[in-house]
Amino acid sequence: MDTVVLLTLTGLGLGALYFLVASGLSLIFGLMDVLNFAHGALLSVGAYATWWAADGHLPGAGPDGAGFLLSVLFGTAVGTAAAVLLELALIRPLYTRPREQVLATVGVGLAVPALLMAVWGADARPFPKPAALSDTVRLLGAAVPADRFVLVAAAAAVLVVLRLFLGRTRHGLVVRAGVEDRAMVTALGIDVRKAFTLVFAIGGAAAALAGALGGLYFGSVSPGQGTSLLIFAFVVVVMGGMGSVTGAAAASVAVGLVQQFANYYTAAGLGDLSVVVLLAVLLLVRPRGLAAAGAAGRPA
């Protein structure tokens, strides 16, 4: 029983990371048809910015308590700024050439981890863990690391905020309408490009937060961390239906749990394998594919 509880919560924690990466990815793809290969790089930027701040480089920030919170905020802000910069500098000028947009993000996805590696080295750096989060919590007989709860809570908070934003605000309405039919929104005289920058900012913030929390989860930061999470985020995006935040949440929970349980109860690595095979099978049994699912119009 205690193993099941531990595995469930660890799976949920992993799922929370996937959700944070995938929600932005999903919105960006749904709205702009851009498969953002630089999303992993944004995550790495957030992770390194948080680590840099918590390491004592930012006044007021530190590895503990309020200082750590400030570090996470700083990391998220840097990730958001990087995403906005990416959208304004590279994606927007290529607006009429969707294929080149994808290629540009591939280039950024290669260059940014390499730059991080050049500055801070290829080896993983130990991530500072606040004392309050390094304990375990006893739950139903299992000793669960406290950071799992932080991850799940953060992802849940992001989900609620995103749903409120998409459902209750005017900007959210434009984003939702754009996901459904971009041409129609443009025809109604609304500048969708502002929404593009907005979803990039949201996606970048969520990815950077995932980077900061991923540092807690894995205990270290490394330049390639974001890229390795990105593939599983793709799985989540496809399973949840492109452009749907709620779908991404459900899919990330499923993927995280399947991965943890399969890795534990069968051979190590089989969980990862089963998830990617799941992706292939899912795409094949629904050959009409993702576009059809998005256009059917699940309200975000």
């Binding site: 590279l90 000028p93 290629l103 540009a104 280039g107 950024v108 290669l110 260059a111 390499a114």
Partner: peptide, 13 residues
């Protein structure tokens, strides 16, 4: 890889 990535973006752009 950084130089190649940057060069790649420049070529695409």
């Amino acid at each position: 890889l950084f130089l190649l990535g940057a060069l790649f973006v420049a070529v695409v752009y």
